[in-house]
């Protein structure tokens, strides 16, 4: 009788423990999703801004067709991305294309004086910043979540309820990845 009660108490405690960890995992996963949606809003905004930017710039830069094509292609690639790791690669490509475009713009003073272009440029800069700041928050959440999933004892519960670790969102542009060259 006593043994039965002890076993019962242990069982109940164990169930409470499992429920607690499960709920913590769900909360963390929701936080990750929420943080991702913050980034997603800004990525969508960037995708929406680009056609306007290209349209405004086209009239001034007729000889830069290659640059425009690169941007448009990078944009459609980024819009088609399904997973976080795909998105981070595609968005990195888009950032590269945009920064190349901004370098080319330097050669067109008329375009740089255009009010419409200037306000689009401001919106784009702001969106890039928002992506960068939201990314920080998202990656922090992913780190918490992945730690929880991989550490004992929560990893047992995570495995049995199919919690899978998430990818970090790292926009790396090709230039930043390159090792700086030193020439003599």
């Amino acid at each position: 009788m006593v043994a039965l009660i002890i076993v019962g108490v242990i069982l109940v405690l164990l169930i409470i423990f499992v429920i607690g960890i499960y709920n913590a995992l769900v909360r963390l996963r929701n936080q990750v999703d929420n943080a991702w949606s913050q980034i997603d809003v800004q990525l969508k905004r960037r995708h929406d801004l680009i056609p306007n930017l290209v349209e405004t710039a086209k009239g001034y830069m007729e000889h830069e067709r290659g640059t425009f094509e690169a941007i448009t292609e990078a944009r459609s690639k980024a819009m088609g991305a399904k997973t976080v790791s795909e998105a981070s690669q595609a968005e990195g490509g888009l950032s590269d294309a945009l920064s190349k475009f901004m370098l080319v713009v330097e050669n067109y003073p008329d375009l740089k004086a255009n009010q419409n272009f200037l306000s689009l440029q401001e919106e784009l800069t702001s969106t890039e910043n928002k992506i960068a700041f939201a990314r920080q928050g998202y990656n922090d959440q992913v780190l918490f979540f992945n730690n929880k999933i991989q550490m004992f004892p929560s990893n047992i519960i995570a495995n049995s309820f199919n919690f899978t670790s998430r990818d970090f969102f790292e926009i790396e542009s090709a230039e930043e990845r390159e090792v700086p060259k030193v020439s003599f």
Binding site: Q38, S119, E122, E123, T125, S126, N129, K130, F133, A134, Q136, G137
Partner: peptide, 16 residues
């Protein structure tokens, strides 16, 4: 003033 507005928005995101 779009720039001011955007900057405040950015910092709202950064500070959560």
């Amino acid at each position: 003033h779009p720039q001011l507005f955007n900057v405040v928005e950015e910092m709202t995101i950064a500070a959560n």
